[in-house]
Design a protein around this nucleic acid. Structure first.
Length: 935
RNA sequence: GGGCCUGUAGCUCAGGUGGCCAGAGCGCACGCCUGAUAAGCGUGAGGUCGGAAGUUCAAGUCUUCCCAGGCCCA
């Protein structure tokens, strides 16, 4: 009985409702969400929810607390956040304690600049206080920037290497090396300014052009040269060296040759000289040789451990081989003074030479140097040259202009000079071998990390741990005021560590030696009880290398850590120092696995620099597009290599973000009248195409979970993105529109579709949550959280877990059939496009598709005949069997009139008197609606 | 100069142990739709796989060299 008026057609269409807006407004919404997270204390909420679960610890490598974060920091911390969030969603308890490296030269330099002239009047304590404030300021600034990226962690209680307890633990770590006997005090050549009378770090050096003497000097070979080659028997043979620092010749203890390079013994008049064959012509030119004859040729290694005489001192000079010798300038025979050059120093150590440096802190030769004692080295240069000329050992002399290190303060040229330093021996206690063994059981990602780490360990010299600076942790050692004996024992170190733990390392500068030492301490050598304190501080790499010990056990976390992830530059640095410290303390690597990431470079793959103008600041991207875009950038990149970033790349990512978001919008906004409790359709009752997309989703889930487990976030990104664009947006959602919009709201077909959409949304949101941390949480908050059966998960998606795989969704046959149907669909779309180009149709609903053929594909189509119009999104289809294996697709205009309600064409339009503009399918729906069958 | 790494369409990525005309998504061009609309759909054009030799019946995939770039060391 129908007394009511016909329904308004438009009002019977179930259009989506705006629950999740398309416009993200990330720049505004992100800070609001961060505030929300902070208010609910999300980080601790998550940890609480994982109580009792297996832990997974990513130990944070501390960035240096100087300056604001750059894009490389963003890459690093976002990667860490991906790992922490994804492992959390796998069900692990993942505490993340961010840290900062607070001591060291760069901060001290910055503070120096700020203090300017005032510094001279300040006490050590005041300067250290200023440095502490400087570090604290940047810890705060960086912490805010990291959190703005969406990184969750214990930011309210981070670890700082300048915390008192941490400082104490640094001292203790040093104590472990002392305990095992690897600490020694020795000499090492360092940059030294003879005007400022101070050691200089590399950062305090500036290179400027300078004129220097360039001289060639002969060193007569001692012993019988026939050992080298029979042709040289009885001859007097000399090695020719080249140097631009004549003043280092009094400290010459050796000559270095390249082991593989070929050298020639050449006869010039009556003399015989040894020179690298490759440099023979050049040397001959410099020395003015007109005629010469090659007597012998041999590789550099034949010279190894032979001996020459010093040209003007009664002393031997040892012939050695080293790979650092180059054949681009000079003679291929390198004058080596272990006290006056870094490579000289390393080679000298290898050959057991003395680190000899007869130059005092003012740059004057000491008394032991005949003829030149008391002379400043640069003044001595011409005197030494003259001396050698008189002795007839000077073969040539000229002046060259070259780049030379200068002091950054006084701008005077600096020298290399041996100074007393503290070292950790790599070999005395087998640290090197222990390190090599330890890294074998570590998982390296990428695999070549093992090789690189191994090379670092093999090649590294003893670790010089002392710095002549103020801002750091002092080397806890005392000197007897009577006999200069060094007092350094594990128990004294522990005693001082306890003082530091309560008062900080400043105590070293505030307290007297007897206050720092255990009561009653006397010199073990002479029994005296007065001491002075060491003034050197520790290398900051010992600070940060201590972090695993100063953080994990101290906070009740398991040791070693599950994973370290840092840039590839850290093999030599933090990975190395952390390993070394851990070996001394616990004889085990501090990490189970180590992941290396690349550096950020520009669109051309070149490094970013202000001068190139290719720098992209994370703060700018956040202000313009949102942190989510940076997160997407990190996810989209293969971070094991250099990671490119450019405006074009960011534009692409913004577009990708919109697509992903729109995909989510479609799902959320079509679920406005769906209550999973009430409207859920069990899998076995769902339409087959809905079961198909859920089977596809199940495959995605496997793929994505595996990618997370392997830290392959770019696989996560590409998989999810492609799934959103192709399977969902282009295929499934497009097909679904007709059913969602035109079916009766509560019909099985529509509820089946909504059930599928709900499952898709729920699972995809959780899968993307580690990456799109803000957006996933927004979807969660606006819709999904209301329906979570697990109440603990409701406050945030980051409390939830990844969807478990469910065999019920997997259906191999279903996938095979539907994938073939989709392949045929692609062919149909091509056929439609041809008719569209011919202006026969516009919308695909204006078409009828006629498929002629036979074989298995045709057989498949026949099985799904009634669903084909929906799948192809056309008004009608017709199957015509033929004697062929091929399918022929023919497109004509659809029959009948366009239904005003569903826009499909049908001959049935106009047949129903009550709804004359509507097709039979819609009439049925409308009559149902009228009768309230679905209300 | 040395150690390690990288170089596939405009962009981001696929291409185990060498074997169909080298793939995807995006972007781009052209078109459709206007009931996902600061949306949606389709079709199409884009690559001497950094370059050159070599091994092989066959190389993006193996070898050598070169070029460009990155990190570390010197």
């Amino acid at each position: 009985m129908t007394t009511q008026a016909p329904l308004d057609l438009k009002s019977t269409i179930n259009l989506p409702k705006r629950i999740l807006p398309m416009k993200a407004n990330l720049v505004q919404s992100e800070p609001a969400r961060l505030k929300r997270w902070k208010e609910m204390d999300l980080y601790h909420l998550i940890l609480k929810s994982r109580q009792g679960r297996e832990t997974f610890v990513l130990h944070d490598g501390p960035p240096y607390a100087n300056g604001n974060i750059h894009i490389g920091h963003a890459l690093n911390k976002i990667l860490k956040d991906f790992i922490v969030k994804s492992r959390t969603m796998m069900g692990y308890a993942c505490p993340f304690v961010p840290g900062w490296d607070c001591h060291g030269l760069p901060i001290e330099i910055q503070v120096d600049k700020k203090l300017g002239a005032r510094k001279a009047r300040m006490s050590v304590i005041d300067i250290r206080r200023a440095a502490r404030e400087h570090a604290a300021y940047f810890v705060r600034a960086q912490s805010e920037d990291f959190q703005r990226l969406g990184v969750l962690g214990e930011f309210d209680n981070p670890y700082l290497t300048m915390d008192f307890r941490y400082q104490a633990d640094i001292v203790r770590a040093f104590g472990q090396f002392v305990r095992e006997g690897s600490v020694y005090k020795g000499l090492r050549a360092v940059h030294w300014c003879i005007h400022c009378q101070t050691a200089l770090a590399e950062a305090e050096i500036e290179y400027r052009d300078r004129q220097s003497p360039s001289i060639y000097v002969k060193f007569p070979l001692a012993g019988d040269p026939a050992r080298l080659d029979a042709a040289l028997a009885g001859r007097s043979v000399s090695v020719v060296i080249w140097t631009t620092t004549p003043w280092t010749l009094p400290a010459n203890l050796g000559i270095a040759f390249h082991p593989e390079a070929e050298y020639s013994a050449v006869e010039v008049n009556d003399a015989v000289y040894i020179v690298a064959s490759a440099l023979l012509d050049e040397v001959a030119g410099k020395l003015g040789w007109e005629r010469w004859r090659i007597l012998a040729r041999f590789p550099g290694k034949k010279l190894d451990r032979l001996v020459a005489r010093h040209p003007f001192i009664d002393r031997e000079s040892l012939l050695m081989v080293g790979d650092h010798v180059t054949l681009d300038t000079g003679t291929g025979a390198v004058h080596t003074a272990p006290g006056h050059g870094y490579e000289d120093y390393l080679l000298g150590q290898e050959y057991g030479l003395e680190i000899y440096s007869p130059v005092d802190e003012r740059g004057r030769f000491t008394e032991e140097v005949d003829h030149f004692a008391g002379l400043e080295v640069f003044e001595a240069n011409p005197r030494i040259i003259e001396h050698m000329r008189r002795l007839g050992v000077l073969l040539a002399e000229e002046v060259i202009t070259h780049s030379y290190p200068h002091c950054w303060r006084c701008h005077q040229p600096v020298i290399f000079r041996a100074t007393p330093q503290w070292f950790i021996s790599m070999d005395k206690t087998g640290l090197r071998q222990r390190a090599l063994r330890a890294i074998e059981s570590v998982t390296w990602l990428p695999e070549w990390g093992y090789e690189r780490m191994r090379n670092v360990i093999l090649q590294r010299p003893d670790w010089c741990i002392s710095r002549q600076r103020l801002w750091g942790v002092p080397i806890v050692a005392f000197y007897c005021r009577q006999c200069e004996t060094i007092l350094i024992t594990p128990s004294i170190i522990e005693h001082v560590a306890q003082i530091f733990e309560h008062k900080g390392a400043d105590a070293w500068y505030e307290m007297e030696p007897h206050e720092l030492l255990p009561p009653g301490t006397t010199c073990p050598h002479c029994g005296y009880d007065q001491f002075r304190k060491e003034t050197d501080i520790l290398d900051v790499w010992l600070d940060s290398g201590t972090s695993s010990l100063a953080v994990l056990p101290r906070r009740g976390l398991p040791w070693p850590a599950d994973v370290y992830i840092e840039g590839g530059d850290q093999f030599r640095a933090w990975f190395n120092s952390s390993l070394t410290v851990a070996l001394a303390a616990r004889n085990q690597a501090p990490f189970r696995s180590v992941i290396a990431h690349g550096w950020t470079v520009d669109a051309q793959g070149e490094k970013m620099s202000k001068s190139k103008g290719n720098v992209i600041e994370p703060q700018e991207v956040i202000k313009k597009s949102g942190a989510e875009i940076l997160r997407l950038w990190v996810a989209s990149s293969n971070y094991h290599e250099e990671v490119r970033i450019s405006n074009e790349i960011l534009t692409r990512l913004i577009e990708a973000y919109r697509k992903i978001r729109n995909t989510a919008c479609y799902m959320v906004n079509n679920l406005w009248d769906f209550d999973p409790q009430r409207d859920w359709i069990p899998l076995h009752q769902m339409l087959e195409i809905d079961r198909w997309i859920l089977a596809e989703l199940e495959e995605q889930l496997h793929r994505v979970r595996k990618a997370y487990e392997n830290y392959q976030f770019y696989v996560v990104y590409h998989s999810l993105y492609k799934f959103c664009t192709v399977e969902l947006s282009a295929i499934y959602f497009d097909i679904l529109k007709d059913r969602l919009y035109t079916s009766a709201p509560k019909s099985l077909g529509r509820r089946s579709a909504q059930t599928a959409l709900y499952l898709l949304l729920d699972k995809l949101t959780r899968l993307m949550a580690p990456i799109l941390a803000f957006t996933a949480d927004e979807i969660w908050e606006r819709f999904l959280s209301h329906h979570q059966p697990n109440e603990a998960w409701r406050p945030s998606v980051h409390l939830a877990e990844f969807p478990a795989s469910d065999a019920a969704f997997h259906d191999e046959g279903l996938l095979r059939r539907w994938r073939e149907l989709m392949e045929i669909r692609r062919q149909v779309l091509k056929a439609l496009e041809i008719k569209r180009a011919e202006k026969e149709i516009g919308s695909s609903l204006e078409a009828k598709v006629i498929i002629t053929g036979g074989g298995p594909s045709f057989e498949l189509l026949s099985q799904y005949e009634d669903q084909l119009p929906a799948i192809f999104i056309v008004s009608q289809t017709e199957l015509r069997p033929a004697e062929t294996q091929q399918l022929h697709i023919h497109v004509t205009r659809a029959e009948g009139q366009k239904c005003e309600r569903c826009w499909n064409y049908s001959p049935s339009v106009g047949q129903h008197p009550r709804y004359p503009t509507v097709c039979q399918r819609c009439v049925t729906t409308l009559l149902e609606l009228e009768s309230g069958a679905h209300s």
